[in-house]
Amino acid sequence: MVFDNNRLDEAFNLIDKGIEDGAFPCAAVAVGNKSDFLKIAVKGNKRIVPYKEMLNRTSLFDLASLTKVVATTTLLMLMIEKGFISVYDKVCEYISSFNEKSKDRITIFQLLTHTSGLPAYIPFYKICRDYDDAIDYICKEVELRETKEVEYSDLNFILLGKILETVGGDKLDKLCKKEIFDPLDMRNTLFNPGNRDVVPTEIDKESGEVICGVCHDENARFFGGISGHAGLFSTIDDLVKFAKMLVNYGEIKNEIFLFYPLFKRMITNYTESLSENRGWGWVIKGNTAAGGDLFSKKAFGHTGFTGTSLWVDPEYGVYIILLTNRVHPTRENVKIIRFRRLFHNAVLASLDGRS
């Protein structure tokens, strides 16, 4: 399918309106298809307190929970391809202490689809000594919830990050760089960006300083900035490379990055009869409101707490990347939720399926 350029321009004008309405201070946006069509916009001020500073195309955004799919899920898929791990392995095969309070029955599949019964969130930075202590706390102290529904949980991906480090024999950041970011030429995608050109997030309540150069997520920051659930930073151009691989079913520049049978399994809806549609790591559109009104049922994507999102529609052959810092200067701003739906609708409405 091709885009009607005039209608797509109108869709991109919504970014200016989103900034004016205070949905976010800045945005880096990309829309593309399976071929070479690409439209990118970079607008607004990346910082508005205590002074204003314009967003650059090379600025790095805190991806928050996009880490779960760009880093952790993708690395797991590559490990599956190599025959190192299976989604039907039990978690306790890799973390031996994860065997109390019925946890010995939990599989990697359940972590990936958020059907493990682990709670959504625990403030480890308040109750644990360090990363290893948090893993130990999940294994020995946390109880599974009696639910057959999807319950989105950071704990699932904290455990997956630990499992991947065990399988790969190295830290998660190094494994992701070697297996994902270098092969896809994502040179500006990393954990712990430090003093690079980073988009600021929230004002820290304790210090009163704007968080910049370290991840916004308190647990991931407590873990040293590296975790399976959050901590990754990237640019709009790097995520375009990643999205082009996804929209082409695992291929990039006529080379296979993820093999087709694995890719298809990754984006299958395994929880269609439950409260939320989930593939391996990814949200599947199905009949839910996720992503907007016009994506096909086969579309898949994910969001990040800081105001980031990536959606791919394999049926229409398009992807939409929306990077914002909606938490700057405060996380109380939730206007992104509705804006995201409206913007996605306008972009998809510009597709001409008759061409």
Rank of each mutant, 00 (worst) to 15 (best):
D4P: 00
E10R: 15
N13W: 05
L14T: 14
D16Y: 14
E20Y: 14
F24T: 11
P25K: 08
A27K: 15
A27I: 12
A28S: 15
V31L: 03
V31G: 12
G32V: 09
G32R: 15
L38I: 13
K43F: 06
K43I: 03
G44A: 01
M54G: 04
L63Y: 10
T72I: 08
T74W: 14
L75R: 14
S86A: 09
D89W: 06
K90N: 06
I95E: 08
F98D: 04
F109A: 07
T113E: 08
S116R: 00
Y121W: 15
I122K: 08
I127F: 03
D136A: 10
R145E: 15
E146R: 01
E151R: 09
E151M: 07
D154N: 08
L155M: 04
L159P: 12
K162G: 02
K162L: 00
E165W: 11
K178G: 00
D182K: 15
D185T: 04
M186Y: 12
R187H: 01
T189H: 13
L190T: 05
L190G: 06
L190C: 09
N195M: 04
P200G: 04
I203P: 07
I203S: 13
I203Y: 09
I203V: 15
D204S: 01
S207H: 06
C212F: 04
C215P: 13
E218T: 03
F222P: 01
F233R: 12
A243Q: 15
N248Y: 07
F259T: 09
F259Y: 13
F259S: 04
F263D: 03
F263Q: 11
R265A: 07
I267E: 06
S273F: 13
L274A: 04
S275M: 09
R278M: 13
W282D: 13
A289M: 05
A289N: 14
K298I: 06
W311S: 10
V312D: 11
E315L: 03
R326A: 03
N333R: 08
V334Q: 03
R338P: 00
H344I: 10
L351I: 15
G353N: 02
S355M: 13
